[in-house]
């Protein structure tokens, strides 16, 4: 993990500018929100999961994360079909805060088009992107 202002990114994951991460394993992409995102949201109290079997598109909304203070739409970093969702989040949404890159994963998608991955950022690019965004404010 690479730490930036004590917020982590994972080296081999890919990142969307809308602050979702994706871990690619063959044709399967695991998706969640980044440490930066969970830190800004605060205590997550509800995660609206997609349905297994639903089609998702890169850049399109597929669910929502609710914290005590805000509602956030989440966007799929890849296109494909949802093959699994993290049911644990129904009972323990706080996993998104405590373990954003592992236990707090949100969905797994069967990737339709590998070439879309090049639209995403590497960990270094994403860390830099966050740093620049924070510097603006």
């Amino acid at each position: 993990m690479h730490f930036l202002n004590s917020l982590a990114v994972v080296k081999d994951f890919k990142y969307a500018e809308s602050h979702e991460w994706v871990k690619v394993d063959g044709k399967t992409a695991t998706v969640g929100i980044t440490d930066h995102a969970q830190d800004h949201l605060g205590d997550v109290v509800y995660v609206e999961l997609p349905e297994v079997g639903a089609a998702v598109n890169q850049g399109s909304g597929f669910g929502a994360v609710e914290s005590v203070k805000a509602t956030s739409d989440i966007y799929s970093p890849v296109s494909g079909d949802v093959v699994e969702v993290n049911e644990e989040l129904n009972n323990t949404p706080g996993l998104v805060n405590s373990s954003p890159y592992e236990k707090g994963w949100i969905m797994k998608v069967e990737i339709k088009d590998d070439s879309e991955l090049k639209n995403l950022k590497s960990s270094d690019e994403y860390a830099k992107f966050c740093e620049e965004e924070d510097a603006k404010h």
């Binding site: 602050h19 930066h36 800004h40 909304g61 203070k69 805000a70 956030s72 966007y75």
Partner: peptide, 12 residues
Amino acid sequence: LGQSITRRLAQA
């Protein structure tokens, strides 16, 4: 208020 803290996350 929540949004203004987190607005940097939003692009949609």
